[in-house]
Design a binder for these strands. Structure first.
Length: 285
DNA sequence: AATTCGGCCTGATTGC
DNA sequence: TGCAATCAGGCCGAAT
C-alpha cells in the first residue's frame, strides 16, 4: 500500500522527530524485520547504539536515516509497515518488530509491521549519478520527485522496452515510487490501457502519462497520502484522505468519474488492474 | 540481456 | 459455527 506519497509523509515525520537525536539502544522483537541486515540482529543493535541521526532521505519507496556521513538505517515499509513515534511508556503494538530508543528518553521510534514484508538494515552510502544512496538500493531508479529525475531519458528507456506500459511503470529499476494504486490512477488520467505496448507508444503520450503520474502523486501528498484502513498511517498514527479521490483503483463495477461506465478489474501479475473500458480501450493487438 | 514469475507474510473477508 | 480458500502486493532471485 505505501507508495511514494505515503513514504514521503512518513519521511517528513521521521525527519521532524529523529534528526539531531542520538540512539541509546535498539531492540529487535522479530528477526525477520532485520533479515536484510546480513550480520544479524545483534550486530544491528550493537552498531546503532551511540549514533546520531543527521538526516532522513528517500528514493521511491525506500527511506533511510543518515548516521554520520557514510552510513544509514535503510527502511522499506513493504505492504503493512509503519514507523511510529511513541512515548516510552506506551504499550507495545501487537506487531511491534523493532524499537529504537534515544538518549533523551523521549519518544521511541517503533517499526510495526503485520506482514513483515518490510524491514530495516544498516548500509553504506555510495555516490551514484543521482546522488548519495545506500549501496543495496543503488539499482533503484530516481523517482518522479527526485531532483535528478530525467524525463527525456526515461521516455527513451520505456520505448526501448518490449512490455506493457503498466509493467514498465511498476519496474523500480526504470522509475521508482510507483505501485499498483498510482499506476492505475495515472493510466486512467492519461486515458491509456495498462497493456499498451511500450514500444508502440508515441514519446508524447509517455510524457503525458509521466506528467499524470507526478500530478496524482502530488495530489495524494497534499491529502496526506492514501489509506484504506488503519494499516497505512503517518508517524503519529493518522491516516491520509486520498482514497476518497481515487477514480478507479479498487472500484470494480463503480462508475468512471469521467464517463460513468462501469470500472473493470482485470487479472494482472497475480493481482489486479483497474480501468475504464470506455476511456481506456484495449489495444488492438 | 531483458523480461516474467513464484515465494515470502498475516489478517479480513468470503464461501461451503 | 468452523474451517479453508482467497486476496491484498513490493521486492528479490530464479527461471525463461
Amino acid at each position: 500500500m505505501p507508495e511514494l506519497p505515503e513514504v514521503e509523509v512518513v519521511r517528513r515525520g521521521v525527519a521532524e522527530h529523529a534528526v539531531g537525536r542520538t540512539v541509546s539502544g535498539a531492540e529487535v522483537l522479530h528477526p525477520r524485520a532485520v533479515r536484510r541486515h546480513l550480520p544479524g540482529p545483534r550486530d544491528f543493535t550493537a552498531r546503532l547504539a551511540g549514533r546520531e541521526v543527521t538526516a532522513v532521505r528517500r528514493r521511491g519507496k525506500y527511506l533511510w536515516l543518515v548516521l554520520d556521513r557514510s552510513e544509514a538505517v535503510v527502511t522499506h515499509l513493504g505492504m503493512s509497515g509503519q514507523l511510529l513515534f511513541q512515548p516510552a511508556g506506551a504499550p507495545d503494538e501487537k506487531h511491534l518488530r523493532v524499537r529504537v530508543r534515544f538518549t533523551d528518553d523521549g519518544p521511541q521510534l517503533r517499526f510495526v509491521d503485520q506482514r513483515t514484508f518490510g524491514g530495516l538494515h544498516l548500509a553504506e552510502l555510495v555516490e551514484t549519478g543521482g546522488g548519495h544512496v545506500p549501496q543495496p538500493i543503488a539499482h533503484i531508479a530516481p523517482d518522479p520527485m527526485d531532483p535528478g529525475f530525467d524525463v527525456a531519458d526515461l521516455v527513451a528507456r520505456i520505448r526501448r522496452r518490449r512490455t506493457g506500459i503498466k509493467r514498465a511503470l511498476l519496474d523500480q529499476g526504470l522509475v521508482s515510487g510507483i505501485g499498483n494504486i498510482y499506476a492505475d490512477e495515472a493510466l486512467w488520467r492519461a486515458r491509456l490501457h495498462w497493456a499498451e505496448p511500450t514500444a508502440e507508444l508515441p514519446a508524447e503520450r509517455i510524457r503525458e502519462l509521466l506528467a499524470e503520474v507526478t500530478a496524482v502523486m502530488r495530489d495524494a501528498l497534499d491529502a496526506g497520502g492514501t489509506s484504506f484502513d488503519a494499516l497505512y498511517v503517518n508517524v503519529n498514527g493518522e491516516s491520509g484522505y486520498f482514497d476518497r479521490s481515487l477514480a478507479v483503483y479498487g472500484k470494480a463495477d463503480g462508475a468512471c468519474p469521467r464517463c460513468g461506465a462501469a470500472v473493470r478489474r482485470d487479472p494482472f501479475m497475480n493481482r489486479s488492474a483497474y480501468s475504464c473500458p470506455v476511456c481506456q480501450p484495449q489495444p488492438r493487438s
